[in-house]
Amino acid sequence: MIREISVKTLAEAVCELCIQANHFLSPDMRNALARAAGQETSPLASRILGQLEENLQIAAEESIPICQDTGMAVVFLKIGQDVHFFDGDLTEAVNDGVRRGYTEGFLRKSVVGDPLLRQNTGDNTPAILHCSIVPGNQVEITVAPKGFGSENMSRIFMLKPADGTEGVKEAIVQTVAEAGPNACPPLVVGVGIGGTFEKAALLAKEALTRETGAPSELPHVCALEAELLERINALQIGPAGLGGNATALAVHINTYATHIAGLPLAVNLCCHVNRHASRVL
């Protein structure tokens, strides 16, 4: 049975999710930060984690964005194959939602229309839109505003099959070590392994939207996540890069089939303000 959904409903949802994500950190992230604070032994690191907790409280109570970098709006749509959109263009509706969310929500306009000419578009559009078609007649929207302090420290590696799991581990730990204080630790480390060049990057981005700390369903990947989290925290980069136990809150790895000749790896770092808000229409 085909379900009709107006793109105006979609735009409204995107608008609200942009505002929500930038003011209220999701419970999974808040819990992960609280756990990190409980395990921190360095006084300076504890003080910084205390400031981050206070910051979240002020943001929520006074409607001030958690971070001034309210990001580029990354929007994931999982569209049921029995949905028919009407009332206009889907992509324009998503951009309209972002435009309204960033204007009405007093969010920063951080997007330039051309990467070389660098004129600010003034309304934070266009969004980065990823659509996938799934069974059913619902639409799942996830808005993940992505800051560029951590985006700039993210990396892609086209490893060889001979590099294997060891090569993957080395590259991930090296990426976090090189990011050091720049990416605003404690981080969430999103990893994509497999696919093609662009598929690995998308897997890594999607991994950041997973419930923080929820393990992979694949036993060998779950073990890899746990080992990497331990190795990354042993780096002692710590909150704000000033030393301490909490360098990463979680490592999320998504995998996909790949070619016999390749082992693509993407490491998408996200700061402690790992924003993601979802809604099902």
């Binding site: 400031q51 910051n55 001030i64 971070c67 302090g149 605003c184 704000a240 700061c271």
Partner: peptide, 13 residues
């Protein structure tokens, strides 16, 4: 000097 990144609401006060 470093200020704490991602604490923009707190620092604004």
């Amino acid at each position: 000097f470093a200020a704490v990144g991602g604490a923009g609401a707190l620092l604004s006060k």
